[in-house]
Design a protein around this nucleic acid. Structure first.
Length: 668
DNA sequence: CTAGGGTTAG
């Protein structure tokens, strides 16, 4: 469940002061050019060139525009073709054309060529220098960047400083940018809105609230705090530092608002755990007359993902298509993740396939790999990674993390270990604790518990509570109560309030009939005031989310649901199901336990879904805790007896129940 | 010198 959040200040008095939205990039060249650009946007650069090359009346803005597209789709050869068009037409002396060309070469890892273009420029502007400096910074040659900066310095004005500071910060050299900012002042150049915007962005990147507040104060002294860009950057900085109220106050004070400001607010709300507020704000800004753009959609789709509300997500997807934002790589990445997290792998695959093969960057591919992994499709995930390697798209740490858990989720131990070694060896990536945790999962799931424990105790980074919890889950499956006690101690050293671990340990002891140990755990829980978090399940029906909590009869159709659940359970019993009382932690007699188990939130939710939803669609239920053993068994029976597909997402993974079998292979 | 966005263990 999302964190509760106070109603946004913004929502209470949002006015209709709208500034003009940035218009979609347009370029010269008429209808052929439009169609050309449309094709390029969809990632079909090569097709676009073949079909339209001779029809287009080339002009400098169009060429510049397309150079940007080349960067987006990593097409060096097309950039070279454009280069020759520039040369043939004698446009090399136009500053912005050469700047774009340099920028494309630099970003496509051809710094040498970019420098040649730079050398041939008869006249340069700040941008030209900035691109070269940026290129050097990206290739890791800071020394050369400084040399160019000094050469540029001989021209020694505010715009130059701003250009370099912006260049640094854009390349994530936040500290360096801030240092230059200080130097700029000691060289008696004063800041303007451009400087402040960049510097605030650096503070946001560093999550440095103290510096950020100082800059905010400085902006007020300069009377620049109401500038659209400065105000937005200030709000963004507060959002990144987790100060939601402060960020909203800044937006509230702005005399003019535009879609960028709205986006800062919506993204900030999601990032600060208030997905419901983000969704609400989205509907509000639309009513206020703002037109959402691709960036808005990325955040709104992410909200649906966090809330696990497939219906709302699909609705937003339709709006994305209508708004013509469906070919933006970030939007698609977000959609893939949303469908996957809402339990609809088909939707994720469809969104992925629609993108076509032309322009799939590493983030987009990683998100699809993660989606396969989430749903236990390890082979598909690995297949996609192979294709990624063939296409020359470079995998990063996130890609490998997704690959590793794809393997552990379906028992591909050897394959997973191979990938782990590939990541360190061939890719030269340093694993983080999350990667090590996946390896622990790979080993322990395969029954190598001792090896997994040795691995944890010898790994070069400090294991966290999750690392140990992974091993503790394995102890449950492999019924090793002694080891479980030892591992639980490690977890409670790190987080003594982690109720899930107490519950897990107690269940393991109960299964091993070690009742004295069970009561020790319960005593510890009482002494340390650890409360078992109540289990909540939710189910979305016709745009409405229904919540179910054990023992809570507040649902308007509670009686009906309860008696229907009884019917279903009787049906399931007639097919051989027997209640497993061990799954209950509570200290009570058997009859009471059975009664409690029978009303677990996921059972209530599934009964409601069986009652209300059409037979043809899978039932998708979300739960805030791990699924209990008994409910897991019941779901398997229901999927068989009723011939219904049930997708249950608990706090860590998906369970797909079909024909009496679960995708997790009873390991979770 | 022109803001704001994407993938991530249990």
């Amino acid at each position: 469940m999302g964190k509760s959040c106070s109603k946004s200040l913004f929502l209470t008095q949002f006015s209709l002061q709208i500034t003009h939205t940035r218009s979609l990039r347009t370029a010269g060249g008429g209808a052929a050019a439009d169609s050309f650009i449309a094709l390029c946007r969809q990632g079909h650069l090569k097709q676009a060139f073949t079909a339209h090359f001779s029809l287009i009346s080339w002009d400098p803005p169009l060429v510049s525009h397309l150079l940007k597209a080349c960067v987006d789709s990593s097409s060096l050869s097309l950039a070279q073709q454009l280069h020759s068009i520039i040369t043939t037409n004698g446009w090399s002396n136009i500053k912005f054309v050469s700047n774009h060309l340099m920028s494309a070469y630099a970003k496509l890892c051809r710094l040498e060529t970019a420098l040649k273009v730079f050398d041939k420029m008869p006249e340069r502007n700040v941008m030209s220098y900035n691109i070269v400096i940026g290129g050097y910074i990206q290739s890791g040659d800071l020394g050369a960047a400084v040399v160019v900066f000094k050469e540029m310095g001989e021209r020694k004005n505010s715009a130059t400083w701003n250009a370099v500071i912006t260049g640094m910060i854009k390349n994530e050299l936040n500290e360096e940018g801030l240092t230059l900012f200080t130097q700029m002042h000691s060289n008696e150049f004063s800041s303007d809105a451009y400087t402040l915007g960049s510097v605030l962005r650096a503070c946001a990147g560093l999550k440095d609230l103290i510096k950020g507040k100082q800059v905010h104060g400085y902006a007020m002294r300069l009377g620049l705090e109401l500038d659209l860009v400065v105000g937005n950057s200030t709000s963004h900085m507060y959002m990144r530092c987790g100060c939601l109220t402060e960020a909203e106050r800044v937006i509230q004070s702005m005399p003019l608002r535009n879609i960028v400001l709205c986006n800062t607010l919506i993204a900030g709300l999601v990032q600060n755990g208030c997905a419901a507020g983000a969704l609400e704000t989205y509907h509000l800004i639309k009513r206020a007359g703002f037109r959402p753009d691709d960036i808005t959609f990325v955040s709104v789709v992410a909200s649906c993902s966090k809330l696990s509300t497939l219906g709302q997500g699909q609705q937003i997807h339709a709006e994305v298509v209508k708004a013509g934002a469906a070919s933006d790589a970030a939007v698609i990445t977000s959609l893939i993740s949303m469908y996957s997290r809402c339990g609809c792998l088909d939707g994720a695959v469809k969104a992925f396939e629609e993108r076509g093969g032309a322009a799939r960057c590493h983030v987009l591919l990683s998100s699809m790999i993660a989606a396969y992994g989430f749903h236990g499709k390890g082979d598909e995930a690995i297949e996609l990674f192979k294709r990624m390697e063939l296409d020359g798209v470079k995998a990063n740490k996130v890609t490998f993390l997704s690959l590793l858990y794809s393997c552990s989720h379906c028992g591909l131990k050897e394959k997973g270990l191979q990938l782990f070694n590939l990541m360190i060896g061939k890719y030269g990536l340093e694993p983080e604790v999350k990667h090590y945790t996946c390896v622990v999962d790979l080993l322990s799931r395969a029954g190598c518990l001792e090896e997994a424990e040795r691995f944890i105790r010898s790994m070069p980074v400090k294991p966290d509570a999750v690392t140990w919890k992974t091993l503790l889950s394995a102890c449950k499956i492999h019924k090793t109560a002694d080891m479980a006690t030892r591992i639980a101690e490690e977890i409670l050293k790190i987080d003594p309030q982690d109720s899930a671990s107490y519950v897990l340990l107690s269940n393991i002891q109960a299964t091993a009939d070690r009742w004295r140990d069970v009561s020790t755990v319960r005593k510890q829980m009482r002494e340390r005031m650890v409360k078992k978090e109540p289990g909540v399940s939710w189910y979305e029906l016709k745009n409405e989310v229904h919540h179910f909590i054990m023992g809570d009869k507040s649902h308007p159709q509670w009686e009906e649901i309860n008696s229907y659940l009884k019917e279903v359970m009787a049906e399931v019993r007639s097919h051989g199901y027997v209640t497993d009382i061990g799954a209950s932690l509570h200290d009570m007699d058997s009859e009471e336990k059975e009664h409690n188990l029978a009303h677990h939130s996921e059972k209530l939710a599934v009964a409601f879904a069986l009652m209300k939803a059409p037979d043809s669609i899978p039932i998708r239920i979300m739960k805030n805790l791990r699924v209990c053993d008994d409910c897991h068994v019941v779901m398997k029976y229901i999927s068989m007896v009723r011939n219904r597909e049930i997708v249950l997402r608990d706090c860590s993974r998906f369970h797909h129940f079909k024909h009496g079998h679960c995708s997790c292979d009873d390991y979770w």
